[in-house]
């Protein structure tokens, strides 16, 4: 019988700590699947953030370290200096990357660091229990915006991909979503291209994944995917924002 799908060797055979319906698991699998297909699992060093995915090193079967909140791009910068031919990535959520770690991600992109960042945007702080994030949508209720986020009080949600795409050192920037099989397949292509940008030492590569947080959104897994589709995608448009010729 022909095998049509196999669980990637890049993931440990264990149950993740993520809530039912959370799309972290899909993002983890995509990154590991691509690294396996590229034959890079033995030569990869990853940096886990502060947030739910601090535990990602329990599930991804590659060398990994934890980072102080938001500092993963600075850590990856140095790892790549010591091991210039290894594949280096950071995996960060929106509280980590778009709030406390804005300085580190912008400056790493600006230096054109040759690592990849996989950015999980679920429009909320997950691990601490559903507070407003810089990416929280207008009107979205969180534990620190109980009446819903307002422009007057919090400003508009930050679009990290568009912001980073303005920086010359960022060579590849794409936003994808994990709400449907079709989008997941597109997301995998984005991860592959990001890996190739690093393999070719072209500069910084960034993939933003629109993700769900059913627990803190107060929705069922299915409803959470619908909410992502109906609310996040209109504000955070999907697609390649920047891509070098070499990986097209």
């Amino acid at each position: 019988m022909k095998t049509v799908f196999e669980y990637t060797k890049g993931m440990n055979e264990t149950i993740t700590s993520y809530c039912p319906g959370c799309t972290h698991g899909i993002a983890h699998r995509l990154v590991m699947e691509c690294l396996e297909e590229k034959g890079l699992l033995d030569d990869t060093i990853g940096v886990a953030p502060i947030g739910c995915s601090i535990n990602s090193h329990r599930f991804m079967d590659v060398d990994m370290c934890e980072s102080a909140h938001g500092r993963a791009p600075a850590i990856a910068t140095a790892i790549k200096r010591v091991h210039p031919d290894k594949f280096v990535f950071t995996y960060q959520g929106d509280g980590d990357l778009a709030s406390i770690g804005t300085c580190e991600i912008v400056q790493a992109a600006h230096r054109g660091e040759k690592f990849c960042t996989f950015f999980i945007n679920n429009a909320i702080y997950g691990m601490t229990g559903g507070q407003c994030a810089p990416t929280t949508l207008i009107g979205q209720k969180t534990t620190t915006t109980i009446e819903g986020r307002t422009v007057a009080h919090n400003g508009k949600p930050i679009r990290m991909s568009e912001l980073l795409a303005t920086i010359d050192g960022a060579k590849y920037v794409e936003r994808v979503a994990l709400d449907s099989p079709a989008h997941v397949r597109q997301a995998k292509k984005a991860v592959m291209r990001a890996i190739e940008v690093q393999e070719k030492k072209l500069g910084f590569a960034f993939v933003e994944f629109l993700s769900t947080c059913p627990t803190n959104w107060g929705l069922s897994p299915v409803k959470a995917c619908e909410w992502l589709r109906d609310n996040m995608i209109p504000y955070y448009p999907l697609g390649v924002i920047k891509c070098p010729e070499e990986v097209k």
Binding site: A74, I75, T77, A78, I79, R81, V82, C103, E104
Partner: peptide
């Protein structure tokens, strides 16, 4: 690397240290 801040600098130092440098 001239870091963007001391917070980043110490994180880079940690990153190089954990890489064995």
């Amino acid at each position: 690397v001239q870091a963007e801040s001391e917070l980043a600098a110490i994180s880079m130092i940690y990153g190089a240290g954990l890489s064995g440098g």
